[in-house]
Write a protein that binds this DNA or RNA. Structure first.
Lengths: 326, 326
DNA sequence: TTGTAGGCGTTATCAG
DNA sequence: CTGATAACGCCTACAA
């Protein structure tokens, strides 16, 4: 495998000149630049990034640690991050923590060892993981879920849940239930809190269940609620994967969407308009979250630290047929 | 930032001993191991992966370059790769080539520079990109699309398209159309070829369109076909994103799925059973593709080269209501 | 403008 | 069993 030495020998110059020529330093004789380039091409030379980074003490790589690669919400964030990072010459390494604090810790260790320039993550909640990054001085930005005293890009999800519930009240539903994610996951707790805010203000009974952020979780929680003595006639569902389970459950129970049971779900998915009636959703600006987080992170890299910054984005309720009673 | 030297000094031993102790070499006095560990903890020492890899001339990192992070087919592959890689102590770096040969080249350059242990990719078709990896001796495995004379894990997508089309014929549809991906993308061409195989055998008219592998592409191609003087009464759609566009187009045109226009789409998506009638699909074993590819790649790493291997997996037609005429 | 040489942090080799 | 030392490949003062 060709090294800078081989190129230098072949071009009849020193390694210093090769380095300068290939890195576009202006102080090199154009004729030499040509000779070096030719030699490099002939040898199929690719600079060794490991050596380069070791020397420079920096890597143009960002780590993005998300809770679920199969969740469109997170892949949208990924694209936002990627687009901004690419434009600035950074690569993005995508890691899947799978909602597990342990996997998160492992990936943070990798990030630490590989000396990435910065980390964006949706924290599982184990703050000790993030603490290690901070100790080392690696910039961190949290997305989707808060990070105490850290940079973060969030959605006001409690407010969004409250508005979505108020919408159900206004649409004439009387017994409104909520299926949210696992207790302890901050977005799940916040959405539940927002639901409660609205329910109490409207003086309605509370009907809530925690479940895994997956279709199976949504399905079971929904079936449980439907089996109550006084079942709900509307549901707020905390993410799109769970919504799939909920819709399955309603079909099984022979309940008509909208007419029998109104449904609002978090996250605007491409298939929301394909079902009948179309699904009312709380659209989160996922791509924008990714962009903002990447910008914030890149701003932190190589800059002196300053006070933590929180960017709060708004979600948007998109009313469709699934919350129309008649 | 603490280095191995700091730890050595603090523990009162040499750097060599620190290295041996932390890497679990058996030939170290247990008492020293304890002292070293303590010193490392106190200093918050994380070994520098760059230096380590530079020294060892190897990295426990795989690059996975896929055409679209937002396509569930590819994220499923990613999980398959990840699960196998994790179990063997490898990390996976996910890169999004976005169906662009240029981005693909850039990511391959990064992989080359960072000296990853191996690469898994869905080739865009520009074989020159892969050639660079080969020259350097970096193992490569192609997924989803073929790589001339290389290791690959593929689905017999031509056969699958043929069977899906035959299913439409058997279901009683008469004018069967096809919406496939961009010309030049191998899966798109193969699915079109499979469609043609069946159409010719059945002596039916051919009605095909190429489009982008996205909802907008599917929508437009479908509208075009529907605007023909003799429009199709059934469609084979080459991926799930395009299927969304197709279903939108049918709704706009007031055509009932199944009864008026039968539809089969590639890739089994979670929402396939939520629409009415449920969508007939060609299910590809995406997770399995990822697993097989990772196993194949890991087998190549550090092993002597041998003849290229092709693993061909089968897709499975799942018949649902969207291909029932009455 | 070019070359020489030292060092980034680690691990492997070779003595002791 | 432990320690000194030489690389790994690159970049960048400093010197010429």
């Amino acid at each position: 495998m060709a090294t800078i030495n081989d190129v230098a020998r072949r071009a009849g110059v020193s390694t210093a000149t090769v380095s300068r020529a290939l890195n576009g330093k202006s102080t090199v004789d154009p004729a030499l630049v040509l000779r070096v380039r030719a030699a490099a091409d002939e040898l199929g030379y690719h600079p060794n990034g490991l050596a380069r980074n070791l020397r420079r003490q920096e890597t143009a790589v960002l780590a993005l640690i998300i809770a679920d690669v199969e969740n469109p919400f997170f892949t949208s964030i990924a694209r936002g991050v990627e687009d901004v990072a690419q434009a600035q010459g950074y690569s993005v390494v995508l890691c899947n923590s799978d909602e597990s604090a342990d996997k998160e810790r492992r990936y943070i260790d990798v990030a630490l060892q590989e000396r990435v320039a910065g980390v964006i993550l949706s924290p599982t909640g184990a703050t000790s993981n993030v603490e290690r990054l901070r100790q080392r001085g690696t910039p961190v930005v949290a997305v989707d879920r808060p990070l105490p005293e850290g940079d973060q890009v969030l959605v006001d999800t409690r407010l969004a849940a409250r508005e979505a519930t108020e919408h159900l009240v206004a649409a004439g539903y009387r017994r409104i239930g909520c299926v949210t994610g696992p207790a302890g996951v901050r977005t799940a707790d916040d959405r539940l809190a927002g639901y409660r805010d609205a329910i109490r203000a409207a003086k309605r009974p509370e009907l809530a269940r925690h479940a895994e952020y997956r279709a199976a979780g949504g399905r079971e929680a929904t079936l449980e609620l439907l089996a109550e003595r006084e079942p709900p006639d509307a549901l707020l569902i905390a993410n799109s994967a769970m919504a799939i389970g909920t819709l399955e459950a309603l079909t099984e129970a022979n309940l008509r969407l909208g007419r029998d049971v109104g449904v609002v779900a978090f996250d605007d998915v491409p298939w929301a308009t394909l079902i009948d009636p179309p699904l009312t959703v709380v659209a989160q600006p996922a791509y924008e979250i990714g962009k903002q987080a990447a910008k914030l992170l890149l701003g932190r890299i190589g800059a002196s630290t300053s006070a933590p910054r929180t960017t709060m984005l708004a979600a948007r309720l998109i009313e469709r047929g699934s919350t129309v009673r008649e």
